[in-house]
Write a protein that binds this DNA or RNA. Structure first.
Lengths: 201, 201
DNA sequence: CTATGTTGTTACCGAAGAGTAACATACTTT
DNA sequence: AAAGTATGTTACTCTTCGGTAACAACATAG
């Protein structure tokens, strides 16, 4: 049994190192861009050499894939927990926007959002697009539920879902936690824009 | 005088060829991405060779710069014409959204939107960011005018302007003129989302 | 203590692609 | 027609970078 125990800690260590790699890579990709960040750059952040990375990842693109896996886990977790509640469609959408803004300050999520669907490998790209479509579909479901229970006005749920993601995902490319806009204020503005729009009534 | 005349047509021809290069490059950048598009690829689209491109552009990055110049001209043109009208702030914002959606189907504009602020050359990057800040500022001006004349509800004009651009610019990366969403429907949904939000009242 | 698997290194390969030099051709002006 | 200028080509250089082979050190298991 001792052998098994040791293997677990080893596996955990490995998992931890992979996570550090992903986190550093994601950060670099967001700051300098995917193509301007070399594997040597990423390796240096860990104080290892490039070939060492290949013990944890398959190739450069695999970093994007692994970031996506983690991001999808968290986003789907948020959506599923919201969908299981017994509240109106509007309240669900409200919760989602709030939770999503909270999530996308994480570098790995931001990296996913910015690079999804851009893999060079065709099957990976297809999978990535599928993953996002899946998420988008859940948001559409929320919107449709809202239209059904009269908490959201009648609209094209597909367009609304896409526009919503556009503006939320846009946040990832400019929001800095140390900037002049704080997260509470941001969330407040997004929520009131989404719910009431800009028009004075 | 004949010399001058001839020079003009030559200059025009040159200008035309440059425009074709920009248009093709912008299209390729949007489809395959900037780094996955080589200058050879772009040259081939014109049925010329790579060195010929260098007669019209300084280097690869210069394509982005030239696209940006043209895009800014058009966007600023739209904004300035709106700002000179005597209508409410809300109506201005409404006109802008409408006009902007109309504009961003053009490949050169889409290319600009997707690549602005991403030049490797520091001074070019700074200029690009400045250009966009300038545009964003005009939109903020419109919003503030709207708040002043009570046509737009009180909100953080900076956040609103950014969010608005995020969702509008997001459109550039998915909208296809031959897709399942037509432009009239799209514009309608965006306008009602911006003005009234999603909440049923 | 020895065998095995894990984790890392150094040193290299090969491809891609931006940019250039030198040379060729065609148009314009005088 | 000759001189000069605009426009293009072929063939090359130089660098960067993703990926790999071969080897080293070390922990763990038996």
């Amino acid at each position: 049994m001792q052998g098994v125990q040791k293997n677990i800690t080893r596996e955990q260590k490995r998992r931890q190192k992979l996570d550090v790699i992903l986190r550093n890579a994601a950060k670099a990709f967001m700051e300098k861009g995917y193509y301007k960040t070399s594997l040597d750059d990423i390796a240096k952040m860990q104080n290892v050499t490039k070939p060492t990375l290949y013990y944890y990842i398959e190739n450069k693109e695999d970093i994007l894939v692994k970031c996506e896996e983690e991001a999808c886990l968290r986003i789907n977790g948020l959506l599923d927990s919201i969908l299981s509640e017994h509240i109106s469609g509007f309240d669900m959408l409200y919760s989602f926007v709030k939770g999503y803004i909270d999530i996308i300050t994480d570098d790995i999520i931001r990296c996913h959002v910015r690079h999804r669907g851009q893999m060079e490998d065709e099957s990976l790209r297809a999978q990535s697009i599928k993953n996002h479509k899946n998420i988008e579909l859940k948001v559409r479901k929320i919107i449709q539920k809202g239209i059904g229970d009269n908490s959201i006005r009648n609209c094209n749920s597909m367009i609304l879902a896409i526009l919503l993601f556009d503006s939320l995902n846009g946040i990832t490319s400019w929001y800095k936690s140390d900037g002049q806009i704080n997260q509470v204020e941001l969330t407040k503005e997004v929520l009131s824009l989404v719910s009431r729009g800009v028009k004075e009534v």
